[in-house]
C-alpha cells in the first residue's frame, strides 16, 4: 500500500519543530508500524537525510519505549496495542497518517518523536518501592496472599510506563501511572508498612513534575495499551485522602 505520512520533526528541545510530509510506497500488511518507519528511515539515510528519531526497543509491547501519537491518539486507534505492536493491516491503501510525539508538559521533546519521560522515574524514586534490602527477605510462602488480591495486584503491575495515559489526558495527568504502582503494593501484605508514606511521596513528586490534575476524563484508560483500569485511580485517591489525614506530611 501507499501512504502519506505527516511526521513531527524537531531538532532538539529548543527548536520549534514542524510537520514534514513523506510518501512511502511498498508498505506491506505484515509490517509493524515501526517497521514501516524503518523503511522510511532507510530511504532517508540513502538520500543523505537524517532519519526520523523515535524511541523503541523490545518491539513486543512490553518495554514501554515506543511512544508515538498516531492520528491524534497515543499508540494509535487500535485498542490495547502499543505502537510497536500495531500492524499495517489496520490501515488502508492511500491513507494519510499523522505521527507526533507523546505530548505533555512533563514530557519535553528531545528530538523528533523522542520525549523525555524521566519524570516517571523520579516518581518511582520518591516512593515506588518496598524498602527491603537484599538478603532480608523472609520465606516466600510465609505470607499467603489471596489469589484475588494477587491477581488484582498483577493487573496494576502490568503497567509498562509508556506514558500514553499522560499524553491522552487533556490535563496531562499521570494518575493512572502513579495509581497503578501505588495499588500494586497496596494490594499486597508486603506493601502495608509503607502504604501511607508511599502514596503521599509519589503524589507529591507527581505534582512537582508538572503533571496536571485528574478531572475524570478517563482518556487514560482508553489509551492504555495494557488496559489498566481507572478503578486504581479511585483506590489511590482513597488511600491518599486517608493518608493525608493520618500521616504527617513530609516534603
Amino acid at each position: 500500500m501507499r501512504l502519506t505520512l505527516y511526521i513531527w520533526r524537531q531538532n532538539n528541545a529548543y527548536d520549534k519543530g514542524r510537520m514534514e510530509k513523506h510518501q512511502v510506497n511498498d508498505v506491506l500488511e505484515d509490517m509493524s508500524f515501526l517497521e514501516m518507519l524503518d523503511v522510511l528511515n532507510e530511504k532517508l539515510i540513502l538520500e543523505g537525510k537524517e532519519p526520523v528519531a523515535f524511541d523503541h526497543d523490545c518491539r513486543e509491547g512490553i518495554c514501554g519505549a515506543c511512544s508515538l501519537t498516531i492520528n491524534g491518539i497515543p499508540h494509535g486507534h487500535e485498542k490495547a496495542t502499543t505502537t510497536c505492536q500495531l500492524h499495517m493491516r489496520k490501515f488502508k491503501d492511500g491513507d494519510s497518517i499523522y505521527i507526533e510525539p507523546f505530548r505533555a508538559k512533563a514530557f519535553p521533546v528531545i528530538k523528533d518523536l523522542i520525549v523525555d519521560r524521566t519524570a516517571f522515574d523520579r516518581i518511582m524514586q520518591a516512593g515506588g518501592f518496598i524498602s527491603i534490602n537484599t538478603g532480608n527477605a523472609p520465606e516466600a510462602n510465609g505470607l499467603p496472599v489471596s489469589k484475588k488480591n494477587a491477581d488484582l495486584s498483577m493487573d496494576a503491575a502490568a503497567c509498562i510506563g509508556c506514558g500514553a495515559c499522560v499524553a491522552a489526558c487533556p490535563n496531562g495527568a499521570a494518575m493512572l501511572f502513579v495509581s497503578a504502582k501505588v495499588s500494586q503494593f497496596a494490594l499486597l501484605p508486603q506493601g502495608q508498612p509503607e502504604r501511607k508514606k508511599r502514596v503521599l511521596a509519589m503524589v507529591n513528586q507527581m505534582e512537582k513534575e508538572g503533571f496536571g490534575a485528574c478531572t475524570n476524563f478517563y482518556e487514560c484508560e482508553a489509551a492504555c495499551p495494557k488496559q489498566i483500569s481507572v478503578r486504581f485511580i479511585a483506590m489511590m485517591n482513597r488511600d491518599y485522602l486517608c493518608s493525608r489525614v493520618t500521616e504527617p506530611v513530609e516534603v
Binding site: A137, P138, A150, L188
Partner: peptide, 13 residues
C-alpha cells in the same frame, strides 16, 4: 524468590 516476593513482585498464586 524470597527477595522478589518481599519486593512486591506479584507472582501467580
Amino acid at each position: 524468590i524470597d527477595q522478589c516476593v518481599a519486593q512486591g513482585v506479584p507472582f501467580a498464586r
